[in-house]
Every structure is written in structure tokens, then in C-alpha cells.
Design a protein around this nucleic acid. Structure first.
Length: 607
DNA sequence: GCAAGGTC
């Protein structure tokens, strides 16, 4: 008997379906001589410090460097403290039973570093010795699964991938556990002051933006504005220059040849530019972009959106939620017309779905090369019954985005009018000719500047128009805004883009800080530690957060670059480089940062 | 009491 093990039940079910296996058992399925079982993500984790004899939180134990890491069952929090998660324990027992019976194992966890780790941790924890092969597919359509099974790889092909995954895991443990205890113990507070490769740079981003914003000194500047009249329709034009002093701007105002100053047509149109502009539809959603949009439009936190979306996924209404890809492959695209047809009776989107079915679909979101473990989020087309208002809101964002993404470009005309009246003034305006994808939600362009006119009257070069009003405007330069959940998620995704070192930047380009599956949890961790709090929609540091930031801000652990350095080394390990060298470096770094924090934390008492 | 990673 061959056992196929997937990362999660939904994938195991998909594969079983392709094989025509339909017999459902407790924790697995079977049929056609195969059994199909699954994990629920990581079932096992590196064992906590006490399992290596490091009891309590004690400076004597630091740095904790276990000679050999152990694995333990994922824990769950109960009234009695942390205990083995019973559902995990049960599933592991089921897997063990199946592995014991197996002649061969086929590894069908997600095709990536963590997927490999999920399987290997189970395999080694169960002390299993059965031979295994690897299914490596990047899309879960029937055809992709069949092709993958025709092309199974030897399990050992992925040994170096496991090595890199195991190193990632150990390194995060060593640095995180030791740094956390070192800072917590030396600070003298009884609180847990956690630090980690991902959470600490995230905290640093929030704190540094907060301080920059708080210490920002606004600069005053001045601009002149005029109101021009074209046959009763007026528009506002701004001085091309802005001025540091009021006097300079007043001079521009004084020179304006307005009606009140005795010039009936003192506005000379010296130029009219009208350019059509195509605006392509947005890409389909990945988790992060959906979390950002839901935060902007509905005020949901990243964590709320993930929970709601997981609920929709479990009711089979949307595809896999924790994806980092905004694309679909050609195989999924082929199903899109049938999918759209399921929404032609939708109360809000029905009309748009019908229209879209009659036109050529935009393929901007179709790119198989940009589909990683999972494709972009789509509705499945199953009928939704009685969703809670919040779930409905998320579902509608997913459906609406699908309709946008396959829609036509929005065609705009951007007009710029230059008027001379003493000096030069410009007015710009945008008119939408063909709404295209913008018809779906029918919302104003959020990027539209407040100075922009919604629409401008038709004027031609050479016209002399009356200037009916003028004003001197006092303005202030603005600081970068505080982070909110949407802007922080985006910053985490792109963290590393500004790294100077080209190799580190490259190593981080696909990853950023954290992963789609973990970013919401990172924000919640910082809140739980009382490092940050939500103030309206903004994320601002607390006094505790700021004092931790002050202690670590110039250390490596507070820089996104640390992830870049690790990613570069982990990729080298995946290509066969020495594991021992990197492990030795991490140990050395662990000793250093532990020593530094044991000293630095004492400073916190005085801040 | 602690990391980051995955998922029900």
C-alpha cells in the first residue's frame, strides 16, 4: 500500500479525487490501493528549552545551545497551561498507523521549504524508515496532479531543501529564545520582552515611523490659486511654483489680472494637453492585498480578515487563503468563464458578470510562472448561504476583485490646462471615458489629489477667459503617516527593497519579512506583548515598545537585513553548501546577542 | 513566560 501525505486536508481530498478514491476514514481517505492522509500544517515543533534541561528563566542557562534539537507535538493553550494539542496527537497516531502499513510514502506537502519541513519532522519524529518519493506541483488542478504523479522525484532530491528548512527553524529558535530571555531577565521587569528575527524589525519599523512622525517639523509654504470661468463653468488653477515666504506668493497674487482688478478676460490659455491614459485592472488578490483592502474599506484587522477568509475556505466558498501569489495559471483561467457564469444572478455583481462574459477577458492576472505553492484567491462558485455580514463583506471583496481583474482597462483622459495671468497657473482634471474594471465597485480613485478638478470645461489654446477669483494659500509639508495595518502589511512585503547590498536585496525579494500566513500573527504578537496598540486605525508603539526599540534599534536583530542574510545562506544550503558552517555562525551570533542584551537590558530600568 | 513557521 502506498500512502500519500499532504500538508492539509483540502489538498489530500483533491488528490484522492483525481485517483477516484472516495472512501472516507477517520483522518484519511482510501481507494485504488492508496491511502491519502494529511497534516494540519506543522504538527511538530522544536522542543522548548526545558526539554534540554534549561529549566525556568535563568541567566545561568544563557545562551541556551541544545547539542541536538528535539521535536515535540504542537502545543495548545489551556487552563492548565500549554499541553499537546489533542487533535494533532490523534492525527499523528493515524499517520503512524498508515506509515507502519506502507510500502512507500509519497510526499505531497506544499512544494517549498516549509512543506518539506512539515513532512520530514513527522517522518523523523515517528522514526519512520519507509522509502519516500516527492510530488512536486505548483498547481492543484487535476491535470497538474496527474502530471506530478507521472513525474515523482526521489525523496533524497530534497535533502538539501530540508537542511535549509531545518536551519531556518533552529536559527529562529536559538536567536529568538535566547534574545527574549536575555532581554526579559536583564530588564528587571517581570514582563516577557520577546525578540525575534521578524517581530523585532517589525516593531522597529513602527517605532521609527512613529518617532519620525512625532518629531516632524512642518514647513510652511505658499501657493497662489485662481478661479477661471469658461462660460459659467469655473475651474481652479494653481501657481506652478510654491513659495517659502508669504511676500513672494503675494506678489504673484498682485500680478493676477482678475476681473475685480479691471481685466475682463485676463486669463490667457497658453496650453491644453489632453492625454488618454489606460489604467489596467488590479491583479487578483493574494492574502496580503486582501487584508490591506479589507482594512482600508471595512476597517478589519489583518487577523480578522484571515479568520473570516479561513471560514469561507472551510465552507468551500473560496480557494486557499494563505497564498502569496496574485496570479493563476492557464488551467485555472480556462475555468473562469464557467465560474463567472455562477455569478450572473448575484444581486450586486450579476449585471457586471453578464457583461464580462460577453467580452474578452483580461489576462493580466494569468501567469503560470508567478503561481507559487498556491494561486491567487478566487471564489469557488459554490453557493453561499446566509453568511454573517463580515464574512459576506470579505466574500464580496473576493468576488468583486475577480470581476475587476478579468475586466477591461479603464480609459481616462487626463487634461492639463496652463493659464497665464501675470504668471503661470495649471489646472488638471481626469475624465473617465470607459470605466472598464472601475465599474465593479464604482468608487472614486483613491489616489486622486485634492487639488485635482473632477472635470474641466472644454477650453482651447489661445482663449482669453475671465479670472473671477484669486487666493493666497498657506500650506504645510506633511510627515510620513503613521503605520496602519494596511500600510504595515505592505511594508512587510516589500521590506528589504531598500537594502543597499544587492545580494541581500535579491535574497529577500520574493519573501519580505514574515510570510502571508504569519504576518497577521506578528501584529497580534506585538500587541499581546504590549509593544504596540491600535489607536483608531493606526498602529502606535507603547512606552514599553519604545524602550525595547531604544535598546535594540542599532542591533542586527532589529534590521530586516538579518532575514536577507539568512535567506542568502539558506539558499546556498539548498544548493548544497555546508550546513555546519551556517550553524556555527548562528551559534556565535546567539552568544553575542545574548551577551549584549544581558548588558543592554539593564539600561531599560533607567529609561 | 519565550521564535517563526504552518493550519483547523
Amino acid at each position: 500500500m502506498k500512502v500519500i501525505i499532504a500538508e492539509k486536508p483540502s489538498v489530500a481530498r483533491e488528490i484522492a479525487k483525481v485517483f477516484g478514491a472516495t472512501t472516507k476514514k477517520d483522518g484519511y481517505m482510501e481507494g485504488k490501493g492508496y491511502t491519502f492522509t494529511w497534516a494540519f500544517g506543522h504538527l511538530l515543533q522544536l522542543a522548548p528549552p526545558q526539554e534540554y534541561g534549561f529549566y525556568g528563566w535563568n541567566v545561568q542557562n544563557l545562551p541556551m545551545l541544545p547539542p541536538k534539537f528535539k521535536l515535540s507535538i504542537r502545543k495548545v493553550k489551556t487552563k492548565e497551561g500549554m499541553v499537546d494539542d489533542p487533535s494533532v496527537k490523534k492525527q499523528l497516531d493515524i499517520i503512524k498507523g498508515l506509515f507502519d502499513e506502507a510500502t512507500e510514502i509519497i510526499v505531497a506537502t506544499d512544494a517549498g521549504r516549509e512543506g518539506e519541513l512539515i513532512f520530514r519532522y513527522i517522518y523523523y519524529y515517528l522514526k519512520c524508515k519507509k522509502p519516500f518519493k516527492r510530488l512536486w506541483i505548483s498547481s492543484q488542478t487535476d491535470e497538474a496532479i496527474k502530471e506530478g504523479f507521472r513525474n515523482l522525484k526521489p525523496g533524497s532530491d530534497y535533502d538539501t531543501l530540508f537542511n535549509s528548512a531545518h536551519c531556518r527553524s533552529q536559527s529562529d529558535w536559538l536567536v529568538g529564545m535566547n534574545a527574549t530571555q536575555a532581554l526579559s531577565l536583564s530588564s528587571g521587569t517581570r514582563a516577557v520582552l520577546s525578540l525575534g528575527r521578524v517581530q523585532t524589525p517589525t516593531l522597529a519599523m513602527i517605532c521609527s515611523r512613529f518617532l519620525e512622525n512625532k518629531n516632524f517639523v512642518p514647513q510652511l509654504y505658499y501657493q497662489a490659486a485662481i478661479q477661471v470661468d469658461k462660460e459659467g463653468q469655473t475651474f481652479r488653477a494653481m501657481s506652478v511654483e510654491s513659495y517659502k515666504t508669504k511676500e513672494e506668493a503675494q506678489k504673484i497674487i498682485d500680478d493676477v489680472e482678475d476681473v475685480a482688478s479691471g481685466f475682463p478676460t485676463g486669463g490667457y490659455v497658453i496650453n491644453v494637453e489632453a492625454k488618454p491614459r489606460k489604467e489596467p485592472p488590479p491583479l487578483l488578490h493574494d492574502l496580503s492585498s486582501l487584508q490591506q483592502e479589507a482594512n482600508k474599506k471595512k476597517g478589519f484587522t489583518a487577523d480578522q480578515t484571515l479568520t473570516l477568509l479561513q471560514g469561507l475556505y472551510e465552507s468551500k466558498l473560496v480557494t486557499y487563503p494563505r497564498t502569496g501569489s496574485r496570479y493563476i495559471g492557464d488551467d485555472v483561467f480556462a475555468e473562469v468563464p464557467a465560474l463567472l457564469a455562477k455569478f450572473t444572478n448575484h444581486p450586486d455583481f450579476g449585471k457586471q458578470a453578464n457583461l464580462l462574459l460577453q467580452s474578452k477577458l483580461n489576462k493580466r492576472s494569468v501567469n503560470a510562472k508567478k503561481v507559487t505553492d498556491h494561486h491567487a484567491i478566487l471564489p469557488t462558485g459554490e453557493t453561499a448561504h446566509q453568511l454573517t455580514p463580515d464574512k459576506q463583506a470579505i466574500y464580496d471583496l473576493v468576488v468583486g476583485r475577480m470581476l475587476e481583474a478579468f475586466n477591461q482597462d479603464c480609459i481616462k483622459e487626463v487634461t492639463k490646462i496652463t493659464v497665464e495671468s501675470g504668471s503661470k497657473f495649471t489646472a488638471s482634471g481626469t475624465v473617465i471615458h470607459t470605466a472598464g474594471w472601475r465599474a465593479i465597485f464604482n468608487e472614486a480613485d483613491e489616489e486622486k489629489k485634492d487639488e485635482e478638478n473632477a472635470s474641466l470645461p472644454k477650453v482651447v489654446q489661445g482663449e482669453h477667459l475671465p479670472v473671477t477669483n484669486k487666493a493666497l494659500l498657506e500650506k504645510q509639508t506633511k510627515p510620513k503617516p503613521l503605520y496602519n495595518e494596511a500600510s504595515l502589511l505592505k511594508a512587510l512585503e516589500t521590506a528589504g527593497k531598500e537594502i543597499d547590498d544587492e545580494e541581500l536585496r535579491y535574497a529577500m525579494k520574493e519573501s519580505g519579512l514574515g510570510t502571508p500566513a504569519t504576518r497577521a500573527a506578528i501584529i497580534e504578537t506585538l500587541i499581546k506583548r504590549d509593544y504596540i496598540l491600535r489607536e483608531k486605525k493606526n498602529l502606535v508603539p507603547t512606552a514599553t515598545g519604545l524602550s525595547v526599540y531604544n535598546v535594540v534599534k542599532s542591533q542586527k536583530i532589529a534590521q530586516a537585513e538579518l532575514t536577507g542574510t539568512w535567506e542568502k545562506r539558506l539558499e546556498e544550503i539548498r544548493s548544497g553548501a555546508s550546513v555546519a558552517d551556517f550553524q556555527e555562525e548562528i551559534k556565535t551570533y546567539t552568544r553575542t546577542i545574548t551577551r549584549e542584551l544581558l548588558q543592554a537590558g539593564t539600561l531599560m530600568k533607567n529609561t
